[in-house]
Amino acid sequence: MKFLLEVTMDDAALARDPAGELGRILRYWGGNLHHYPLRPGDGSVICDSEYREVGRWRVADQTK
């Protein structure tokens, strides 16, 4: 399996403070991962501090 996290960094809060926003995203999602079984197909959208969708994370089968 692979854990994939993709974030678009050229918009709004991420463009203003990339390190701060990425740090917040990683802390938030890292703290919530226990809510997921982390099997292929699991995933969710990622929002910035202004609640705008800026990416997704997902668990993928290694063969895909």
Rank of each mutant, 00 (worst) to 15 (best):
M1N: 03
M1I: 01
M1H: 06
K2I: 12
K2P: 00
F3W: 09
F3G: 09
F3T: 01
F3S: 05
L4A: 11
L4V: 15
L5Q: 12
L5A: 10
E6I: 13
E6A: 14
V7K: 03
V7R: 09
T8I: 04
M9V: 11
M9Y: 04
M9N: 12
D10K: 02
D11H: 09
D11L: 05
D11E: 10
A12G: 11
A12V: 01
A12M: 10
A12T: 04
A12C: 11
A12S: 11
A12I: 00
A13Q: 13
A13M: 07
L14F: 12
L14E: 12
A15F: 09
A15W: 08
R16E: 15
D17R: 13
D17I: 04
D17K: 08
P18I: 07
P18E: 14
P18F: 03
A19S: 07
A19K: 08
G20C: 04
G20S: 11
G20H: 05
E21A: 07
E21L: 08
E21Q: 15
E21W: 10
L22F: 05
G23V: 09
G23S: 12
R24T: 08
I25L: 07
L26P: 00
L26T: 13
L26N: 10
R27N: 06
R27Q: 07
W29K: 08
W29P: 01
W29H: 15
G30H: 10
G30D: 06
G30V: 06
G31C: 03
L33R: 10
L33H: 02
H34K: 14
H34D: 14
H34R: 14
Y36Q: 12
Y36C: 10
Y36H: 14
Y36S: 15
P37R: 14
P37I: 04
L38N: 05
R39N: 07
R39D: 06
P40D: 00
P40N: 02
G41P: 02
G41I: 08
G41F: 02
G43M: 07
G43H: 09
G43N: 10
S44K: 02
S44V: 01
V45Y: 14
V45A: 08
I46S: 05
I46F: 02
C47N: 07
C47F: 06
C47Q: 12
D48P: 05
S49A: 13
E50G: 04
E50Q: 14
E50R: 15
Y51I: 00
R52V: 08
R52E: 13
R52G: 04
E53A: 05
E53I: 09
V54T: 06
G55T: 04
G55V: 04
R56A: 11
R56N: 10
W57F: 12
V59S: 01
A60Y: 00
A60M: 05
A60S: 00
D61E: 08
Q62T: 01
Q62F: 02
Q62H: 01
T63K: 05
T63S: 13
K64D: 03
